[in-house]
């Protein structure tokens, strides 16, 4: 393709091709501090393309393709090329990655132990992880957490954090503009701005961490903590995994072990500060 870039996030080496220079330049800015090995073959290919030649210039719209595709995915305007790239990368991991159990969850770590936050969009898992990552925790990822079936450890996938709507201002108040991408206003997912993880979080991205807490955050409502049983945690995490079924017994073994060895809680919180303090509170009580 005309423009391309190679990016390594956690264990996944991406190759991203684009019909336009813009998305590749924007990715280059976000991922400039990530380790780069130009000889390493790609695990996943993403393509950002115009489906008609003239659509590169005339009302340019970015189609998302790659090794795995969603047949009816709508294209995005070129101004949202970065979002298209992010969606393309997520898609390849969600549909193609088979080495680890893939949880749709954010994660942070401290003292070689991790807190895994699993929830649907709107649960605030991404914002909580981003803010914790600025408050003494190592950010492991805001979207995917990988569980190694052999060791039971959690592995990081620290892509640039996709901040949405209110979370943008919360994070802007804490980090300098050098760590933020351009504001993408009015996307199908609302306003989006990317946060570059701290350099130490990127440098530590290959270090496995023992899971210590499983949290299922729910944004909104009075602060609440509720312990949940192994069976319920198991069901919630199979629903939060895109490759549980494809992994067969390896996924079963990894997940039963995870829910047995890791205490699980739902937390409800009305604002980020409360959410963070609930995480700290549970962390202080977590067995070690």
């Amino acid at each position: 393709m005309r423009h391309s870039i190679r990016i390594a996030v956690g264990p996944v080496q991406f190759r991203i091709g684009s019909d336009w220079a813009g998305p590749v330049a924007a990715l280059g800015h976000l991922y400039a501090g990530y380790p780069q090995d130009d000889t390493r073959p790609a695990d996943a290919t993403v393509r950002l393309y115009a489906n008609r030649p003239w659509r590169r210039w005339l009302r340019p719209s970015v189609h998302i393709g790659g090794d795995y595709i969603v047949p009816d995915a709508l294209p995005l305007p070129l101004s949202m090329g970065l979002l298209a790239a992010e969606m393309g990368m997520n898609l390849q991991v969600a549909l193609g990655w088979r080495r680890h159990l893939l949880l749709h969850a954010s994660a942070v770590a401290r003292d070689d132990r991790s807190v895994i936050l699993s929830g649907a969009s709107g649960s605030g898992k991404s914002t909580l992880a981003a803010l914790l990552g600025e408050s003494g925790w190592r950010l492991m990822g805001d979207e995917f957490t990988l569980i190694d079936p052999a060791s039971g450890d959690a592995l990081a996938f620290p892509r640039a954090v996709s901040l949405k709507n209110e979370a943008i201002a919360e994070v802007e108040a804490r980090v300098g503009p050098a760590r933020l991408g351009p504001l993408l206003a009015g996307t199908p997912k609302g306003d989006i701005r990317h946060l570059i993880p701290r350099a130490d979080a990127v440098a530590a991205m290959h270090e496995p961490v023992r899971p210590a807490l499983l949290l299922f955050p729910q944004f909104g409502g009075a602060p609440a903590i509720e312990r949940i049983g192994q069976g319920e945690a198991f069901v919630r995490l199979t629903e939060a995994s895109t490759n549980y079924i494809a992994l067969g017994e390896a996924g079963f073994a990894a997940l039963t072990r995870l829910v047995r060895e890791t205490p699980a809680f739902t937390i409800a919180y009305p604002d980020s500060a409360t959410g963070m303090s609930l995480v700290e509170q549970l962390w202080a009580l977590a067995p070690r």
Partner: peptide
């Protein structure tokens, strides 16, 4: 595999849980 009050069964023939 017992999980608290439930049991998770993996069937190696069907690969289903």
């Amino acid at each position: 595999e017992p999980l608290g009050e439930l049991a998770a069964i993996f069937d190696r023939r069907s690969q289903q849980t």
